[in-house]
Measured scan of single mutants.
Amino acid sequence: VTVHVNRYTYHFDNPEEAEKFAREMAKRLNMTVEIHGNTLKVE
């Protein structure tokens, strides 16, 4: 599972951890999480 935050890319083996990380980053940056299959984008 890949998480994109701005120009950074993070890889996770565990989808739940990836989503938790993405949501935490989105909250911190006041952004939203978009899910595209195995890719989560924080925008």
Score class of each variant (00 low, 15 high):
residue 5 V to A: 03
residue 6 N to F: 14
residue 16 E to P: 04
residue 31 M to F: 06
residue 8 Y to H: 13
residue 40 L to E: 04
residue 15 P to F: 15
residue 34 E to I: 15
residue 40 L to R: 03
residue 27 K to L: 13
residue 18 A to T: 00
residue 26 A to E: 03
residue 35 I to Y: 13
residue 3 V to K: 01
residue 3 V to I: 03
residue 12 F to H: 00
residue 34 E to H: 15
residue 1 V to H: 08
residue 17 E to A: 11
residue 23 R to C: 15
residue 20 K to F: 09
residue 21 F to A: 02
residue 34 E to R: 15
residue 42 V to C: 08
residue 28 R to Y: 08
residue 34 E to T: 15
residue 7 R to T: 11
residue 20 K to D: 08
residue 3 V to P: 01
residue 10 Y to R: 03
residue 3 V to Y: 00
residue 1 V to C: 14
residue 20 K to Q: 11
residue 23 R to A: 08
residue 33 V to A: 02
residue 1 V to P: 03
residue 14 N to W: 05
residue 35 I to H: 09
residue 40 L to P: 04
residue 8 Y to A: 11
residue 24 E to I: 11
residue 7 R to I: 08
residue 29 L to Q: 04
residue 8 Y to C: 15
residue 26 A to L: 03
residue 25 M to V: 12
residue 33 V to T: 02
residue 19 E to D: 07
residue 18 A to V: 01
residue 38 N to F: 04
residue 23 R to P: 00
residue 32 T to M: 10
residue 3 V to Q: 01
residue 5 V to K: 02
residue 25 M to A: 06
residue 21 F to G: 00
residue 9 T to E: 07
residue 41 K to A: 07
residue 6 N to I: 10
residue 16 E to Q: 11
residue 40 L to S: 04
residue 29 L to I: 03
residue 42 V to A: 03
residue 30 N to P: 01
residue 37 G to I: 06
residue 7 R to C: 14
residue 15 P to C: 15
residue 35 I to T: 07
residue 23 R to S: 06
residue 43 E to R: 14
residue 9 T to Q: 10
residue 17 E to V: 08
residue 20 K to A: 12
residue 15 P to R: 15
residue 4 H to L: 13
residue 29 L to F: 12
residue 43 E to L: 15
residue 22 A to C: 05
residue 5 V to W: 07
residue 12 F to I: 01
residue 37 G to C: 10
residue 38 N to C: 13
residue 4 H to N: 05
residue 21 F to Y: 03
residue 16 E to V: 12
residue 23 R to M: 09
residue 36 H to I: 13
residue 12 F to S: 00
residue 2 T to H: 13
residue 7 R to Q: 13
residue 23 R to Q: 09
residue 23 R to L: 09
residue 22 A to M: 03
residue 8 Y to R: 13
residue 29 L to K: 03
residue 33 V to Y: 05
residue 6 N to G: 15
residue 43 E to G: 15
residue 22 A to R: 02
residue 2 T to L: 09
residue 21 F to I: 01
residue 1 V to S: 06
residue 30 N to Q: 07
residue 18 A to M: 01
residue 12 F to G: 00
residue 4 H to G: 02
residue 43 E to W: 13
residue 41 K to R: 14
residue 22 A to G: 02
residue 35 I to Q: 09
residue 21 F to S: 00
residue 5 V to C: 13
residue 7 R to G: 15
residue 41 K to I: 15
residue 41 K to Y: 15
residue 24 E to P: 00
residue 24 E to L: 12
residue 1 V to K: 04
residue 40 L to F: 10
residue 21 F to N: 00
residue 19 E to Y: 15
residue 34 E to S: 15
residue 14 N to C: 10
residue 37 G to K: 06
residue 28 R to I: 11
residue 10 Y to T: 01
residue 18 A to P: 00
residue 23 R to V: 07
residue 6 N to Q: 11
residue 16 E to F: 11
residue 14 N to V: 07
residue 4 H to M: 13
residue 15 P to K: 14
residue 16 E to G: 08
residue 11 H to A: 05
residue 1 V to G: 03
